[in-house]
Design a protein around this nucleic acid. Structure first.
Lengths: 188, 188
DNA sequence: CGGCTTGCCTAAATAGTTTAGGCAAATGTA
DNA sequence: TACATTTGCCTAAACTATTTAGGCAAGCCG
């Protein structure tokens, strides 16, 4: 019986591809087994369960996103940094919709704490160094940015803006302008 | 064989309750059949499929949300209206997490066009009458508000803000202040 | 080369989805 | 009231996904 060379790593990657192709909720061990031309039970040597696989895909997506965000922020500040980070999220969601959906998976607290999720908050906070925000206001702003990025991207991805003009590129640019303006003139 | 009195309506409502109790992805025809003490196949006289049921729950949630939003906006304008609408979304998501998740379900274009989703955009636009925004900027602002409301609520619901101070009430209030300020001073 | 580990296997139980076809309760009609 | 029709819920069965238990052989290690 030819050994295929399955590993947890390879299954997670293939699962992520499957998510991007079919949607995150179509990621099943059965589909994964078919892809590797292997019996389903064989996968259980590498992942504990279907949920385990989904969690691993989520962690992969969070890590990939954080890596790209860190790259994009390197050497940038102010509005340039804001735009760069925002576009990382938006582009990732467009090119990897299944992974992006996976990144939204609710993780249990310990898993979440050990995930790249914390890096995202740090990276978002880093942007604010280019603006004059301190203390609690910084946290409020981090949460606002997270909300706008995630909210916009998921509405756009979900087709929420499909049937209205003008196009989403314009809106996206204007929203980034607006956020920049808001951060420079944060109300007290 | 005692007739239970199933209808599409009752199944949809019970499905929505199930979603709030167990999570939207735990809504199955099997669970619904158990709740009514009826065999699964019997449900197929009232819903076409499992997906059909989920779509109906989504439409129910969208309609309920739009009703509440319309109520909340009646007689309000400006920041009061902004706050009222925002709190409708947030409160609905907290009290009906499963329904809120259902409302995010991707609908096919015709279904979406016939849904209460369009009312949401209209209601959000109504808020902007209290601010000085016209033309394309109005649409940009509608999309921004939608993004913030949805993004914030889903991050909060997903536990994204769990492990950081200060508490979310403060942030929520500050974000509404910030949005109000932004709408009053929309950059060109 | 012989032994151990490990990778993938078969087999079987559980659970959800869906369709086909049947019987009896509810409803309409004479 | 009696009969016919419709309709509601049923049984049965096929299919798919998840998960566990136990087996055999391929690979590596002495």
């Amino acid at each position: 019986m030819a050994r295929v060379g399955l590993t947890t790593e390879r299954l997670t990657r293939a699962g992520a591809e499957l998510a991007d192709e079919l949607g995150f909720d179509q990621v099943t061990l059965s589909a994964l087994a078919r892809r590797f031309e292997v019996k389903v039970a064989s996968l259980y040597s590498h992942v504990r369960s279907s949920e385990d696989l989904r969690t691993r895909i989520a962690l992969l997506a969070l890590a990939e996103l954080a890596d790209r965000a860190a790259d994009a922020l390197a050497g940038r500040a102010g509005k340039e940094a804001l735009t760069a980070l925002a576009n990382v999220y938006r582009d990732y969601a467009k090119t990897h919709p299944g992974r992006y959906a996976a990144a939204q998976l609710r993780l249990d607290p310990e898993t979440a704490a050990a995930s790249a999720g914390v890096r995202h908050a740090q990276l978002t906070r880093a942007i604010l160094r280019g603006y004059d925000l301190t203390g609690a206001d910084q946290t409020h702003a981090v949460r606002l940015l997270g909300s706008v990025f995630h909210g916009y991207v998921s509405l756009e991805l979900g087709g929420g803006f499909d049937h209205s003009a003008p196009d989403t590129e314009q809106t996206w640019a204007r929203i980034l302008d607006a956020l920049d303006s808001l951060l420079r003139n944060w109300p007290d």
